[in-house]
Structure formats: structure tokens, C-alpha cells
């Protein structure tokens, strides 16, 4: 993140030039909003997808591991450009907000109005608290290393507790068919999905013999480690894509 340090005072634009650069800002903001809804949502839906779509996929092991790990990618890449080149600490919040806008529109119009699934069965998870911390961390530290370690970890560790207030009530037990189920499992059984048989769920696959059933914190800490690495990796991916090179041929 080195920059040429040539402290020189330049005057801010005024008059027409100020209006012009502001108009350019708005154009870029509109462009970026749809870009990140479209691209981050596609990336997210095809990597986290099912864990985020369905209430009966939000388990203690895979959901808090996979979601932050795949969710920290675009935020890191966008921060690498917006902070490094513009000192704008909003890359993570912008990406996650865009993702949620796209997600909510789809859950309502594609799942509910088209195919009659109740919206509470397809509630998305939120990564916004982690994104806010990630942006604030980068701004205050101005350091890739500190943001990757502290910010990346916070992004992963905050995920489960951020979402438990939304999803805890779906984990209330019910007696059904001579067995114990959660309300979430019952959604999966009752509300018919032709392409999502129960066995397809990748949930609760560990044995947990020695850890006193503390599955979610373990998954979160594992995710924290991976998010640290993922953040740094995607920071450089973001930088690489933001090349300004012109080629003589392709």
C-alpha cells in the first residue's frame, strides 16, 4: 500500500469541475451498485448458495464456516482498490449491502411470489456487522496484515452471533413423526421442494466426540483462520484485477 509521498497542496475543484467530478461519482456509484449485486451475488449463490437459501441448511458446522469464507472475498478485493487508491473505507459494507439487496429481491420475487415458498423459510443471513468492522478496522489500521488477521477473524467470528437472533427460534424442538426435529427441519419436510431432498443437505457431518458439542464456536474459529488467509489472498486478487495496463495485443 505504498503511495508516493509528495505532500503538496492542491486546490479542490470548484464550479463546473466540481459538479463534473460529482456527476462522475454518481455514475460510478450506480455502476458499482449493480456490478456488486450482480457479481457478488452470483459468486455467493454458487459457493454458499444452499446454506443461505434454506432455513434447514443453517447448521452449526458448515454454515458458519462456508459463509464468511466465501463472503469475505469480494469485500477484500474491493477494499484493496477503494482504500488503497481512494481512502474510501466502505468496500466491505458496500459489497455485503449489495449482496443483501440482490438476495432479498430474489427471495421475495423468485421464491415467494413465483413458487410460493414462505419468506421465513428462505431468510438470508447477514454479514453486515462483520463488514462494518472490516471497514473500520482497515481505516483505523491502514494495514493489510492487521485487517487480515483482526478484521478477517472478526468477520468470521461475528457471523454466527449476528445471525443467531434471526435463526435461533427456528431451532426450537418439535416432536414430529416419533422423532425430535427443529422447526427448520420441519420447513424442509413440509414445504415440498422437488430438487432438494433431505439427504442433499451438507450439515452436521462431524462426530464431535471430544469437544462437548461446541460445534459452532469451533467452526467459527476455523473460519476465522481461513478468513485471515482468504482476506489476504483476495486483497491481492482485487489489486491484480485493478490493473491499469494497456496491452499491444490480446
Amino acid at each position: 500500500m505504498s503511495l508516493p509521498v509528495t505532500t503538496q497542496s492542491i486546490k479542490p475543484y470548484t464550479g463546473e469541475k466540481a459538479r463534473l467530478v460529482r456527476a462522475y461519482d454518481y455514475l460510478i456509484l450506480v455502476l458499482a451498485l449493480f456490478l456488486f449485486i450482480g457479481s457478488f451475488h452470483l459468486h455467493f449463490a454458487l459457493t454458499v448458495g444452499d446454506w443461505d437459501f434454506w432455513v434447514d441448511w443453517k447448521d452449526r458446522q458448515w454454515w458458519p464456516l462456508v459463509t464468511p469464507l466465501m463472503g469475505i472475498t469480494f469485500p477484500a478485493a474491493v477494499q484493496a482498490v477503494l482504500w488503497d487508491k481512494f481512502r474510501l473505507p466502505l468496500g466491505a459494507t458496500l459489497c455485503v449491502t449489495a449482496l443483501l439487496i440482490g438476495t432479498w429481491i430474489t427471495r421475495i420475487f423468485a421464491y415467494h411470489y413465483w413458487n410460493f415458498f414462505p419468506v421465513n423459510m428462505v431468510l438470508p443471513a447477514t454479514m453486515l456487522p462483520g463488514a462494518l468492522v472490516l471497514d473500520a478496522m482497515l481505516m483505523l489500521s491502514n494495514s493489510l496484515t492487521i485487517t487480515a488477521i483482526a478484521g478477517g477473524s472478526a468477520f468470521a467470528l461475528l457471523f454466527y452471533p449476528s445471525n443467531w437472533p434471526i435463526f435461533a427460534l427456528f431451532h426450537q424442538p418439535v416432536e414430529y413423526a416419533n422423532a425430535q426435529l427443529t422447526l427448520a427441519d420441519l420447513f424442509g419436510f413440509q414445504y415440498i421442494r422437488t430438487g432438494m431432498p433431505e439427504y442433499l443437505r451438507i450439515i452436521e457431518r462431524g462426530t464431535l466426540r471430544t469437544y462437548g458439542q461446541y460445534a459452532a464456536p469451533l467452526a467459527a474459529f476455523c473460519s476465522a483462520l481461513l478468513c485471515t488467509l482468504m482476506y489476504a489472498l483476495w486483497w491481492y486478487i482485487g489489486k491484480w484485477f485493478a490493473t491499469t495496463r494497456y496491452l499491444s495485443k490480446i
Binding site: 467530478v21 487508491k85 466502505l90
Partner: peptide
């Protein structure tokens, strides 16, 4: 948080000032 930042001049202005060391 987003509005706090986007209410001020953004891309061209900030890039120019950052390059000038006015962080």
C-alpha cells in the same frame, strides 16, 4: 456508514488528493 462517506466528493477528488499526499 455508506452515506457518511458518499456524501463527499469521491473518486476523482480523493484519488487526486491522495496522490498529492493529502491523506
Amino acid at each position: 456508514w455508506l452515506l457518511w462517506w458518499v456524501r463527499r466528493p469521491l473518486f476523482i477528488s480523493r484519488y487526486r488528493m491522495l496522490q498529492a499526499g493529502m491523506e
